[in-house]
Measured scan of single mutants.
Amino acid sequence: DESNKPILLPNESQSFERSVQLLDQIPSYDTHKIAVLYVGEGQSNSELAILSNEHGSYRYTEFLTGLGRLIELKDCQPDKVYLGGLDVCGEDGQFTYCWHDDIMQAVFHIATLMPTKDVDKHRCDKKRHLGNDFVSIVYNDSGEDFKLGTIKGQFNFVHVIVTPLDYECNLVSLQCRKDMEGLVDTSVAKIVSDRNLPFVARQMALHANMASQVHHSRSNPTDIYPSKWIARLRHIKRLRQRICEEAAYSNPSLPLVHPPSHSKAPAQTPAEPTPGYEVGQRKRLISSVEDFTE
């Protein structure tokens, strides 16, 4: 099969070098950035008060330690540790928490760990991170309901609301924008112990962030949302095809390698009803078989 044979790379090609550099910018793992907010007593309706908090309760602090690993920003190499735009020179604080497994990295933009500057009256330095995160974990210690939209931002799609209760338990629920209701189930609340709260809140936030990324990708319907490693695979396959075309153009005697095509017509299947918005969006999480067989 010609399409699977190794090909020689061009010795000097600026377009090839640019493509390789672009490939280096696509990590081999999925990345997520999640905002974390603490809401104190009497702050449920005040964005400024929430963003001005420099610490929270003892249970909130224990919750943070379970979310991930504490890292010092100045020691991080952005090409190895995903920071979601946090500055490593102290502009966004000294520490944050991050978490990773074999296929993804997540960083938490924690408002109480970011510096509260006197010259920044409206807390814009914090909002440029927190307001651009799709998902926020809100530790609501106010005793009042927290409403979506209290923290203004164009991309605040989903809130994971943590409400501490007695007996070391917590109520965990989801809020989302109306255009996200087909992807996020907000109907079920959970009672979770303090011990298990970081794991549950983190998983709910990661799932909500993946759904938000799919939702946000609708602005470019021709580019369905893939995982990062599938995006790398697609980029490599496009690069291979372009090299083959350039080689055939410079030397017409060489065969032009095309991806294999299936001449056999697909079997006719009964027509199915058109899937609704929710089903269609969830299918976009699934990769096409052509990603692996071309």
Rank of each mutant, 00 (worst) to 15 (best):
S3M: 09
N4T: 12
N4Y: 11
L8Y: 12
E12T: 05
Q14C: 11
E17Q: 13
S19V: 12
V20S: 07
D24I: 01
P27V: 05
Y29R: 13
Y29H: 06
H32R: 01
H32D: 01
I34N: 01
V39F: 01
G40T: 02
G42R: 04
L48P: 11
S52M: 06
N53W: 00
Y58T: 07
R59S: 01
T61A: 06
E62M: 08
F63A: 00
G66S: 03
G68T: 05
L70Y: 04
I71V: 10
L73N: 14
L73V: 10
L73C: 10
Q77D: 14
Q77I: 09
P78E: 12
P78H: 04
K80D: 15
V81F: 14
V81Q: 15
V81G: 11
L86M: 10
D87K: 14
D87L: 01
E91K: 15
D92R: 10
F95W: 07
Y97A: 11
Y97G: 03
W99M: 04
H100E: 15
D101M: 01
I103G: 04
A111G: 05
T112M: 01
T112E: 02
T112Y: 01
T116I: 09
T116F: 07
D118N: 11
V119I: 10
K121M: 12
R123Y: 14
R123N: 11
C124W: 15
H129Y: 14
L130C: 04
L130S: 05
L130K: 03
N132S: 15
D133L: 10
S136P: 01
V138P: 00
D141E: 06
E144K: 06
K147V: 09
L148F: 15
T150A: 05
Q154A: 15
V160L: 04
E168Y: 04
E168H: 11
C169R: 03
C169F: 09
N170A: 07
Q175D: 08
C176G: 02
C176V: 12
K178W: 11
M180A: 04
L183I: 11
D185F: 02
V188K: 06
A189S: 10
S193T: 06
N196V: 04
P198C: 02
V200R: 00
R202L: 03
Q203I: 08
L206M: 05
A208H: 03
A211W: 05
Q213H: 10
Q213W: 12
V214P: 01
V214R: 02
H215G: 03
H215W: 10
H215L: 12
H216E: 08
S217N: 06
N220Y: 06
N220Q: 06
P221D: 13
T222R: 08
D223V: 06
Y225S: 14
Y225N: 07
K228P: 05
W229I: 04
I230C: 14
L233D: 15
L233P: 14
L233R: 09
R234C: 05
R234Y: 04
K237H: 13
R240G: 14
I243D: 04
C244R: 07
S250C: 14
P252D: 12
S253F: 07
P255C: 08
V257C: 10
S263A: 12
S263N: 14
P266W: 06
A267W: 07
T269H: 10
P270D: 08
A271R: 09
E272S: 09
E272N: 10
T274N: 11
P275I: 09
G280P: 14
Q281M: 09
R282S: 14
R284Q: 13
L285S: 12
I286S: 15
V289C: 11
